[in-house]
Write a protein that binds this DNA or RNA. Sequence first.
DNA 1: CCAGACGTTGTT
DNA 2: GTCTGG
DNA 3: CCAGACGTTGTT
DNA 4: GTCTGG
Length: 370
Amino acid sequence: MCGRVRCTLHVHQVARACGLTSGDDASSLPARQMDRYRPSYNVSPGACLPVVRKAAVGEEAAPAIHCMKWGLVPSFTKKTDKPDHYKMFNARSESIKEKTSFRRLLPTNRCLVAVEGFYEWKKDGSKKQPYYIHFEDQRPLVFAALYDSWSNSEGEILYTFTILTTRCSAALEWLHDRMPVILGNKDSIDIWLNSCAMNFEAVLRPYEGPDLVWYPVTPAVGKRSFDCPECIKEIQLKPTGDKLISMFFTLKPAAADQSEKGGTQKPSSELSQTHYSTCSVKGEHLSNEYEEPKKDEKTVQSDDFASPKMETGQQEICGIKREFEEITADYKPKVENISSWPCSPAKKKERTTKNAGERQASLLSYFGKK
DNA sequence: CCAGACGTTGTT
DNA sequence: GTCTGG
DNA sequence: CCAGACGTTGTT
DNA sequence: GTCTGG
């Protein structure tokens, strides 16, 4: 599921992530109600986020950015009802064609939501540990979403959206069984937003790319009022008893990790994603969505990992694609550009899947640094 | 026909 | 709005 | 989803 | 534990 996100992006970053503009000039963008947007490290349903949608009938042809409330309130909701944004803040992508509340939105009300990352809580019995999931290179995640509008008794029009979910990627299964639908490349984005045919099935799948990474964060992020860079600061987890024991009796911990690769076991790595990344196969394309950032790749996707095959007609649509890098090239992490956060700025450690192995190779690291 | 629902998540 | 159940 | 409450009576 | 509120 996906019930909490970080979105401190600027409007032009959202536009860019969703493939709307080529430059930083957002002034020409059709933007609606953007004054309601409050960038936040801790966004939950009920809050407004910038949404990219196709222009409504009668407007300019180009897509537009529209600030909408997270948590779908269907247009048929009684005018006297109190809108409940927590009832439908997610939509199961597997069943959107059957569910009456969502099916009617599919032809014309598909949209995109761009965020820096999302939070997921790992349940351990009665304990809950939140993790922050994001792209390693800090480019925004683009979620597939659906929107609707509803008029209340006062005649005010409320725009709301719901984020599509799918089963979890292999890499994140240890954490959860559901994840948001991440449109990992320009083709997916274009198909979800612009394809007039109902041929979007192929993009509604788990994002399996190895560049989706995570780490544990403070449980304080559970409080909606806790909104500051500390939300995304990595914390050191206390090792559990069995982890300690297994470390004592395992001479080569990395080898033990490798043995889990491809298996059904959960990576015993709630400590950090880096631990698990040693399990992924070098050079193996695990994803159907992930697009290798190669400059000269011209084709839609290599067949080796293009998974759910696109029909011939659909490749036509993919032909519109531009290089993904083109729209992500100048994303930079900009945690500092919001000046008035009450908490101290997060000092995100440089950490990649490359050096990941080193970090967990040491037995000492399991006792925390002193 | 009319009335009433229309959703996801997690947990055991 | 549209489908299901009675 | 997570956080936070979870109750009644009688008196002023 | 379970319900309500956001």
